[in-house]
């Protein structure tokens, strides 16, 4: 995973032409950890601080019924107004695209970024909306019955990506 993250960090730098105006925004929960790691890699490379934020999209979902009987809403915090910034959304798995749709709606309530890009560790296909990632760590073919599990050291004690069939 660390090689994939390293490569994603380089691709983000290319996409954003450096760190000026760059903001990394992780989607709760594992996207936040991944954004943090990528930001550190970029900072080590460039020697410039990369602002980052966290976004919980639960309240922006398009179907309240799918949140479950005991929903847990994570923290949302953004590093100031996003107007004029290049926001890069970071998430662990890209699947139907509905999470990203919700994230785009939510970001619009925090300002008007000049550009929003999408960076995911795993693209598992299966899109239900016309949304594609700009940067992909690894693309995996899956079916609707498969489950893609991303574990990160900070939350799970180890880095691992599993496709459970």
């Amino acid at each position: 995973m660390s090689r994939a993250l390293q490569r994603m960090a380089v691709e983000i730098l290319e996409l954003a032409h450096g760190t000026d105006d760059l903001v990394l925004i992780g989607i709760q929960r594992r996207g936040v950890e991944l954004a943090e790691r990528i930001a550190k890699l970029i900072e080590r490379e460039e020697g410039a601080a990369v602002p980052r934020g966290a976004l919980d999209i639960t309240l922006y979902r398009d179907d309240l019924g799918t949140v479950g009987p005991k929903p847990v809403i994570g923290e949302t915090h953004l590093p100031g107004d996003l107007t004029g910034k290049h926001a890069v959304i970071v998430d662990d798995v890209l699947y139907t695209g509905r999470t990203v749709r919700a994230a785009l709606d939510e970001l619009a309530d925090f300002g008007r970024p000049k550009r929003i890009s999408l960076c995911v560790l795993v693209d598992r296909g299966g899109r239900e909306l016309p949304i594609q990632a700009d940067i992909v760590g690894k693309a995996v073919k899956t079916t609707a019955d498969d489950r893609v599990e991303v574990l990160v050291e900070e939350l799970d004690g180890r880095d691992q990506v599993d496709v459970v069939r």
């Binding site: 594992r30 799918t66 479950g68 798995v93 999470t99 598992r124 609707a144």
Partner: peptide, 9 residues
């Protein structure tokens, strides 16, 4: 049903 689709969509 949503959970079966994976941790994230």
């Amino acid at each position: 049903a949503a959970k079966r689709g994976g941790a994230s969509e």
